[in-house]
Design a protein around this nucleic acid. Structure first.
Lengths: 183, 183
DNA sequence: CTCGTGTGAGACAAAGAAGTCTCATGTGCG
DNA sequence: CGCACATGAGACTTCTTTGTCTCACACGAG
């Protein structure tokens, strides 16, 4: 009887990822519930997006935990993270573009935590001599987000097979497009 | 007296790049004209976005022309292209996300032309042995768009200096994040 | 100077979506 | 069986934005 909140959130994520301007009515239909019920669980569109943001942050931090960023070579930690984040990449891409609208408002502190953990990984890789030092951790973080968004979008468009998601992103990010004689 | 159409378009591009949900009234104010005049020049919001799309395609093809993609090493051609496209990167990032809304509708054929030219550059680089063959031209194209969008966004956010735009994008795209003994 | 054209300001209606409310229904539990 | 609670359906209001229209004004050309 009681609506499955998690199911509603995931349906909304799936729809809004494809059509970010979907109305509350469309979101409700996608979740298989009525607009009234949707409203009973989420005060409004803002509350829904905020809940999606919380979900995205949770999944992102779960992926960061599962990837054990502090263990082993930084490049392998990065690969583990991309593998873990793949199912949530489309949601993150949606939230990434949605965040651009929160101009003056304070944004969720979760993103700052995530950014800090990513940047820390890149700093660790630089300190160990694995990563180049001429590309700043902040830029590497932004660049990885961009590649994740591109990968998610290319996947939903059918231009990139989900099984190739991690390989294509990690290989380009770590190795670049240039061909090398020796790895 | 007559409104400068190009000025209006560029003002709209600058505003919509930052706030993609800006109203026609905000767009008009940003351009320093009244909403009525804006409406006299662009039948509606759709027409405005279409005009921006045409502008973006023009600038993109101009950058492709200026970069002389067929001359010299593919890596240098890519670097020239990124340098040329930098001023228009924010507009392209806006159009890139806006295109996701045109679900069923046919999209401007200009994008297909641009995609084809980019993919041709990557294929040329692969044929000459410059670029890796395990990353498909289609993915390299998508990935470059993602990095351009990330770079444009990081620039408007102040996290990336405009003068570093080309270097950061091209170095990561071509060379990757891993440190190498020899270039 | 005078006329014509383009513009600004504001009023107005139409459309779309958000948000609220009521009522009937159906399901689970005691 | 009967009660309590959550949901679905729909009506309704409100708000925002869009699109159209009118009218006064300013500038430039003749």
């Amino acid at each position: 009887m009681a609506v499955d909140r998690d199911h509603v959130l995931r349906s909304a994520a799936a729809l809004l990822t494809r059509k970010s301007t979907a109305t509350m009515d469309e979101v409700a239909k996608a979740a298989g519930i009525s607009r009234a019920t949707l409203h009973r669980h989420f005060a409004g569109r803002d509350a829904l997006v905020r809940a999606l943001e919380t979900l995205g942050i949770q999944e992102c931090e779960a992926a960061l935990d599962a990837a054990r960023l502090d263990d082993g070579p930084a490049r392998e930690a990065l690969r583990r993270f991309v593998t873990e984040i793949e199912p949530a990449a489309a949601l993150l891409a949606f939230l990434y573009s949605e965040n651009q609208l929160y101009e003056g408002e304070e944004q969720n502190a979760g993103w700052a935590r995530i950014d800090a953990r990513m940047a820390a990984l890149f700093r660790r890789g630089q300190s160990s001599g694995e990563f180049r030092i001429d590309l700043t951790p902040a830029w590497l973080t932004d660049a990885l987000y961009g590649l994740l968004a591109s990968g998610a979008w290319a996947t939903t468009e059918g231009r990139l097979a989900p099984k190739d998601f991690t390989y294509m992103i990690v290989e380009l990010f770590l190795g670049g497009a240039l061909r090398r004689e020796e790895p």
